[in-house]
Structures are given as C-alpha cells and as structure tokens.
Design a protein around this nucleic acid. Structure first.
Lengths: 159, 159
DNA sequence: TATTGTTATACTCTATAACTATA
DNA sequence: TATAGTTATAGAGTATAACAATA
C-alpha cells in the first residue's frame, strides 16, 4: 500500500510552488528523466551518451570540444563519457588534420545502436506525450523554445 | 567574444534532439536553474531549501518524512538539508506528540527570509517568463501539468 | 513488527585547475 | 601564446542499507 493511501486526503498546501514555473518545469523534467531511464535500461545508455551519438551521427568528424560545446558538457567531463562509448565499440577517435584533436566517428556497432536508439526514442517521446494532443505537443515545443531563447541568448554587446 | 562568434555560422545539425521533448525540457530546466542560481545568490539558498521553507510556511507542524515525501526528497538526505536551515536559524525541530518525530516550524528569522524569497521568486518568475505572453505562460502551466499527470500517476490498481 | 530520524556510504553530474602536446 | 585533450579533484545531488528510539 503506497504512503499516499495511508495519509488519505493529506491535501497539503504547496502554496506558490504550484504557481512556480521553475518548480513545475523541474517536476516535468524529473518525470521525463525517470521514464527515460526505464525505457532505455535495456540499451544501457544515458541521456548524455545518447545525445553524443546523435550529434556525431549527424555531424561526423567533429572534435571533442565541438561536441562538448554543442551539448553543454565540459570538455573535461566529456573524456570519460566518450571513453565509455569507445570501450563499448560504439564510437571512436579518428586522427584529424590538427594533430591536437580527434575526428569523432561512429562505428558500425554505433550505427546499429543508433537504430535501436531511434526506435526507443520514438516510443519514449510518445510515452511522455501521452497526456498531450498533437497540437498540445507542438505548442509545448513552441513555448519551451520561447522560454529558453531569452535566457540562453548571449549578452548582446550594446554599442 | 563568445565561442559562438568564433565558429561563425557553425550551423551544426542537432537532428532529432531538437524534436525531442525530453531534450528541450532539459535545456529549459537547466536555463531556469541557472537563472535561479544567479538571482538567489544573495540569499544563499538552494531551490530545495527554498521549497522546504515554502512547504513549512503553508503547513507548519509537518514531520520530516511528510515534507520529504511531498517534495520527493529522500528522508536520509533531508536531514543535512534541514540541519542547514536550522543552523542558520531559519527553521527548527519542535517536539511532537509522537516522540519519534519532530514538528517542523519556521522561526521569526525564517519568516523574514520567506518575505525576501517571495520577492526574489516573483522577480525570478518574471525573468524566466520574459519570452512568454501572459496567455503563453498560462498555457505552459497547463501543458506541463498535462504532461506530468500520466507519468507521476501511481499505478491504478485495476480490479 | 513497523516507523522516524539518523549515519554512513557510494555513485553520478558537474565544475575548476593544471598538465602535455601540439599549433 | 593559445588551443585540444587529459588528469585530478572537489562539490553538489541522489540512492541504499542499517541502526537506535519509539510506536
């Protein structure tokens, strides 16, 4: 029996937390993350690893710094993350013209993994959109992007 | 000069990441979190500590377990979190009828802090809503709650 | 027996500084 | 001098197991 049933009608007052966009956004992100974990458990892959494979798929040959910057991952933390992908034979560091860097590539096994990722990702998107109509989902994208834009936007240099 | 300007028109392909609700949601949550950190720095308080104070404000006398459950914090992790609030004189553990537990309360200093929190919180909500109209903001609440509901909903026991 | 608060612990993420080899 | 990758490390946040006091 869940604790909720014990505290029957515990009706506790969340006050302004329920009116806080930040709080609701955090709850949504957390719920989505947990759903991700459940659905991707069989592939044994994290959201971050997933995003790296997806970026390399569309942009082969990028350097570690380019991929890190694109995904908001610190270069230092990217190393171990990519080591994991390389150890599993999903991606590799190929030599680049600039000998300080690597050209990141997928392996055949990585491409096979991506086909599975695409499938699970589609199912995941459908799952987390269960409470939304198609129009709702489209609108949610628009609103989230509208929210993000002014916050991520680099400081425009006034002159 | 930001890195973006250096890699002028680097136009790299995010592929399905841009069509992933999970990814966009994560970016939004991250942007909002960073804005929170900046604006609440002067109060030296985390989102979690903030939410605890807000819950106790509206529901004085709750136990640690009740507050933890309400906010999705593990009981074990709540201890240090509340120790911090108590050390700063913002909240306290009062004795309860059940001597295993405490009735959590605000102190006068905690109530004073909450007035500041309310003010900064209002400013924060306005800041993160900068890219949204009032109607947009209301719609975003509706959509996020619609997304969350089926994911958080405990497994309904069919019978 | 079960529950509350607690401690200890571990694992993941994230952030910073400093090193190396190349440029 | 500056940059790419790397290492080491430290700090959050979060997870589980086990214990003492109390119910």
């Amino acid at each position: 029996m869940p604790a909720v049933a014990l505290q029957l009608e515990n009706e506790l007052d969340y006050g302004r937390l329920d009116q806080s966009l930040g709080y609701v956004l955090r709850r949504a992100q957390l719920a989505v993350f947990k759903t991700f974990q459940t659905m991707f458990r069989a592939l044994d892959i994290t959201p971050a690893q997933c995003s790296v494979l997806l970026i390399i798929e569309k942009n082969p040959g990028l350097t570690q710094t380019q991929v890190s910057d694109a995904l908001g991952i610190k270069r230092a933390n990217f190393v171990a993350l990519f080591d994991g992908l390389e150890a599993r034979g999903l991606a590799q560091r190929a030599s680049a013209s600039d000998r300080r860097s690597y050209a990141l590539q997928l392996t055949p096994r990585g491409r096979a993994m991506l086909r599975k990722i695409h499938a699970v990702s589609d199912a995941h998107e459908e799952k987390i959109s269960a409470g939304l109509t198609q129009a709702d989902r489209h609108e949610l994208f628009r609103l989230l992007n509208a929210l993000i834009a002014p916050l991520e936007e680099p400081v425009a240099d006034a002159e």
